[in-house]
C-alpha cells in the first residue's frame, strides 16, 4: 500500500473507536466526543498533538527513505493571473502534516483562487505546489485530486441517493464501497441511516455533511475546505466545524480552510495566513495573526 494514500482500513477507522487508538484530538473536540460516550485523549493546542505518537506514526506507514520534515503541502511562488488580472501572486507557504492552516482575507483577496490552485482545478501561471515534496504537476490530475480532497462552499451533490454520492469517488478508481462502509462513514458524520435518502430532501447542513463524507470516502491525505459553513446557520455551521475538526485530527490530515470568519479561524486553525489582492500579507500562529480580530 503506498504510504501517500490512506487505505480502506484507515477509512474505516473514521468510526469512533479510532479515537481510542491514540489519534490526536483537540481539546474542544475531545470534550465533545466524551459527551458522545467515546474515549478520548486530551491535548492542548500549544503543545500540539499528544497521545500515542509512536502508534500514530506507525499507522501512517511513512517510508524510511522520505525526509520526515517534508511539508505535506507546500506552495512555491504560486501565482495565477487571467488576462491582466492578478488572482494569486507569488505565494510560498508550507503546511505540515496534521496542521490546519486558515486562509482569511477580504472578498476578492484570492482565497478561493489559492485553494483551487492547490487542487489544480486551475492552472498556476507561475510557481507550483509540492505534495509531500513532489511537484504536483508530476502527478496525474485525477490521482492528485483523490489525494488532496476538496469541499466546496456549496455541497454540489449529484442527483440520486446519499449512498451513491458517497460511493462516487472510490468508484472513479474502480473501488467499490461496501454498504457497511458507507453506513459507517455516514454514521461518523452524524447521518446514520441516510444511505437511501434522496439528496434533494436534505437540509443545507446535511448536504454539506454528505459533501464532506463524499470527499473523505476517497481517503485523502489533505483536505481543502472552501468556506464550507458560509451558507449555513450558526448551529449547522458549528456542527460542521466540530465534525471537520474531529476528523482531520483523528486521521491526522493536513487541512487548508478558506474562511471569512476570523472566529472560525481562531477555533479551527493552528496557523492563519492573510491574503489581500492575491498577495500574502502575513502568516503565523492564529492567535498572533488574528490577535486583534
Amino acid at each position: 500500500m503506498p504510504w501517500v494514500r490512506n487505505s480502506w482500513p484507515r477509512l474505516i477507522s473514521l468510526q469512533p473507536e479510532g479515537v481510542a487508538r491514540g489519534c490526536p484530538l483537540p481539546t474542544k473536540m475531545a470534550q465533545s466526543t466524551k459527551k458522545k460516550n467515546m474515549s478520548a485523549v486530551t491535548i492542548t493546542r500549544s503543545t500540539g498533538y499528544i497521545g500515542d505518537a509512536a502508534s500514530s506514526e506507525a499507522t501512517w506507514d511513512r517510508p524510511a527513505g522520505l525526509a520526515h520534515q517534508a511539508p505535506a503541502l507546500e506552495t512555491e511562488c504560486l501565482s495565477r493571473s487571467i488576462a491582466e488580472r492578478i488572482l494569486v501572486s507569488d505565494i510560498s507557504v508550507q503546511v505540515q502534516l496534521g496542521e490546519v492552516l486558515a486562509v482569511v482575507g477580504p472578498s476578492g483577496a484570492g482565497k478561493s483562487s489559492f485553494l483551487r490552485l492547490l487542487n489544480r482545478l486551475d492552472e498556476p501561471t507561475g510557481g507550483t505546489v509540492r505534495l509531500n515534496g513532489q511537484d504536483y504537476r508530476e502527478l496525474a490530475p485525477r490521482e492528485l485530486r483523490r489525494r488532496v480532497g476538496m469541499v466546496m462552499q456549496a455541497a454540489y451533490l449529484f442527483p440520486g441517493t446519499v449512498a451513491a454520492n458517497v460511493a462516487f469517488g472510490p468508484a472513479q478508481c474502480g473501488e467499490r464501497l461496501a454498504p457497511e462502509q458507507i453506513a459507517i462513514l455516514l454514521q461518523r458524520v452524524g447521518l446514520p441511516g441516510y444511505q437511501e435518502r434522496d439528496v434533494s430532501n436534505l437540509s443545507g447542513g446535511e448536504a454539506q455533511r454528505v459533501s464532506i463524507v463524499r470527499t473523505l470516502a476517497n481517503a485523502p491525505e489533505a483536505l481543502l475546505l472552501d468556506e464550507p459553513t458560509s451558507a449555513l446557520d450558526d448551529i449547522s455551521a458549528r456542527g460542521i466545524e466540530d465534525l471537520v475538526l474531529s476528523i482531520i485530527h483523528e486521521r491526522r490530515m493536513t487541512c487548508v480552510i478558506v474562511t471569512h470568519n476570523t472566529a472560525q479561524a481562531h477555533r479551527i486553525a493552528d496557523r492563519t495566513m492573510i491574503l489581500e489582492a492575491g498577495k500574502l500579507v502575513t502568516i503565523g500562529l492564529t492567535k498572533e495573526v488574528l490577535r486583534d480580530c
Partner: peptide, 16 residues
Amino acid sequence: VGQIEAGLTLGADPAV
C-alpha cells in the same frame, strides 16, 4: 459548473 468541478475534485474523469 459546481457539480462538474465537484466531480473533478473527487478524481473523476472529465468525460464522466
